[in-house]
Amino acid sequence: MKKLLNKKNIISIVSAALIYILITYLVSSGILSRHYQSLLVPIGVNIILAVSLNLTVGFLGELTLGHAGFMSVGAYAGCLFTVYANLPVYIEFPIALMIGGLVAAIFGVIIGVPALRLKGDYLAIVTLAFGEIIRSVVTNLEITGGAGGLKGIEKTSNYTIVFVIALITIVMISNLVHSRHGRAICSIRDNIIASESVGINIVYHKLLAFVIAAFFAGVAGVLYGHNLGILKPSTFDFNKSIEILVIVVLGGMGNILGSIISATIITLLPEVLRGLSDYRMLIYAVVLIAMMILNTSPKFAEFKENIASKLKGKRSKGKGDGNVTIRG
């Protein structure tokens, strides 16, 4: 137990508890309007999606454009289960979450085994293609309710459940990253040839990252479905995958805390800037381009390092979990 209670973990646990207490206070006191309360679940769902996508994009260094596809598969699997199984909620819902995650993970294996032989642009396009295929098939199936959507899903998701699941996701992904398997995944990102030369099984570790990311995307889908009460195939299109990608990129690739903060901002943004809602897509586009150019620019890297060393004082040089600068 001593190892679990180091300084860093205690800070994390305390801050998670404080955030939860703060949310509960804001909700129960009525400071948070109903409208903003309704955004708490979507924020949590986006955090799960972003943290899991960060595993493939940020830590493994492979761009996948089909995250919404995994979310959709998980959502339909989990929601169909609760629609058809008539069990008490406290039994039904955890099972639905597991089913959603597992079905998405199975799709992760089915898609990952062939697709991960490809790299870079081809992998991105193939995952995009798979996402679109899933969407077409879901639209044409009867059991999923087709284009009209799957209706009558119980609205079980509330902010407490989503908070707990998001927390579990964050802990799991961060545990993975700090284990030997996570180091192997990061080594593939940094230099695949060197990684092979020290005996890392590339295919296995790529698939591992891909499947775990798919699992959590599926879980997020189940939460999403049980929040809205209806699932439509058009929700899980290419644009949803891009939105999650924008969150990951804005928060910093390979930065879990960044993903959490950025998921919160991006989910609130259209609501806070009501008048700017027409400009949402434009803002996403500019964010993507600007972040990529800035992260590549050596001057900006220097600037960031200066800020970081000022903030951190003594432990300046190159330490920490900061953003990944990916080089060619």
Partner: peptide
């Protein structure tokens, strides 16, 4: 030189030790 440049010096060596350890995912 082919190092894992975004990883710490210690982690670079630990990647090399990866296959000698057995704990599962």
């Amino acid at each position: 030189i082919r190092l894992f440049h975004n990883m710490t010096v210690l982690d670079n060596v630990k990647v090399g030790l990866n296959n000698q350890k057995k704990y599962s995912v």
